[in-house]
């Protein structure tokens, strides 16, 4: 997995909003737009059992560091196969499911990545025993499965908005589920763009 960080000073607008008030303003950190490529979220499925046995480690990701992590508490979201869970809410009882210790939540909005400029507090949901906050299944969440070609496409216009385990906000657009974005390569490799708002309590991007 590689992470690129490009500082694009999206924070300017935020700074601008508060620049007329007094000099005690805290210095806000830059909002950064980054890309994660080829995050490998391997999942194995054994179809000889009924129901099939799905296994594999969930790969945990931490927005503040922009990296995957092994930490049992300091993570925000985790990937395995097409499933994405958040560090907040109830366990579903899956094999290798990490324990949720934070306050993370998520929702999906139909828009372009650049157009999502603020969060909608009321839309956040956490994982539950029945369903992930990022709902699974073709057409229900972030991807579409084509039963003819067997290709999983990141559905265009699906922007994932997250509250992190410690109450920050991030937005994500998943671009591809295949190594180097080539559907003839192996699947279970995520490439996504994200913007993390490093400033506590700031709800805009």
């Amino acid at each position: 997995m590689k992470t690129f960080k490009i500082s694009i000073l999206l924070a300017i607008s935020i700074l601008g909003l508060s620049s007329c008030s007094d000099d005690d303003d805290p210095v806000l950190l830059d909002v950064e737009s980054s890309q994660v490529t080829n995050l490998h979220a391997e999942q194995t499925s054994d179809y000889t059992t009924s129901p099939p046995t799905v296994a594999g480690e969930f790969i945990k990701f931490d927005f503040s560091s922009g990296n995957t992590t092994e930490s049992s508490t300091d993570w925000d979201i985790a990937f395995r196969g097409t499933s994405i869970l958040v560090n907040g809410g109830e366990a579903m009882g899956l094999v290798s499911e990490p324990e949720r210790t934070g306050e993370a939540a998520a929702y999906i909005v139909d828009d372009t990545f650049a157009s999502v400029l603020s969060i909608s507090e009321g839309s956040f949901v956490q994982d539950s025993a029945e369903e992930f906050a990022i709902t699974s299944g073709s057409g229900n969440g972030w991807y579409t499965y084509d039963s003819t070609t067997h290709i999983i496409t990141a559905t265009a216009g699906k922007i994932l908005v997250f509250r992190t385990a410690d109450g920050h906000f991030a937005k994500v657009e998943i671009l591809s589920y295949y190594y180097d974005g080539d559907t003839s390569n192996d699947s279970q490799y995520y490439t996504f763009n994200y913007v993390y708002q490093p400033n506590e309590g700031v709800t805009t991007f």
Binding site: A114, T155, L175, G181, D182, T191
Partner: peptide, 15 residues
């Protein structure tokens, strides 16, 4: 404006 597409896999979606 509810419909989106990408030019190719890996590129951001647009209206």
């Amino acid at each position: 404006g509810e419909i989106f597409a990408r030019l190719n896999t890996g590129s951001p979606s647009f209206h």
